[in-house]
């Protein structure tokens, strides 16, 4: 863990939303620049293209597009930087990267919901879990 701690420096808080926004773009650029290295470390050439990875990064960032509090943005940026460092420093293994960024969270099974069409909300929830 120590090397990550060294690598991730906590910058001072962003003074304004504008500054935070600027930092997000910086982070995105930094992540995009590291894509070739990542592809090489994890041997990703046959499973994904750089542009797909770029759009995955953009998607991850856009998940939080409704956040307007600069402090929260700073925190999210910190987490993102940490994650990026872990990837670049080879702290992860190939299947981590593939699982999280190539295949995505839903996994290989894509439920298209055609079977559940027309069934009630109750039944849809029932199929997923006992607790609702």
């Amino acid at each position: 863990m120590a090397f990550t701690m060294r690598a991730v420096k906590v910058p001072p808080n962003s003074a304004s939303l504008e500054e935070a926004r600027h930092r997000v773009f910086d982070f995105f650029k930094q992540a995009c620049r590291s894509i070739p290295t990542v592809m090489e470390i994890y041997n990703l050439d046959d499973v994904v293209t750089p542009s797909q990875l770029r759009s995955t990064i953009a998607k991850e960032i856009r998940k939080n597009q409704n956040v307007t509090n600069p402090k929260v943005i700073d925190m999210l940026l910190f987490k993102g930087t940490e994650e990026l460092n872990n990837i670049v420093e080879h702290a992860k293994q190939r299947h981590h990267v593939i699982g999280q960024y190539v295949i995505g969270q839903e996994g290989l099974v894509h439920e298209l919901g055609s079977k559940d069409q027309g069934s009630s909300d109750f039944l849809k929830k029932f199929y997923t879990s006992n607790y609702f």
Partner: peptide, 23 residues
Amino acid sequence: DARDDWKIIRALSEVAGAQLPYD
């Protein structure tokens, strides 16, 4: 993957086309 008893019957009733009126 167990479910509460009444939920199972409620779900089955819907699949069987005789939906019970409680959720």
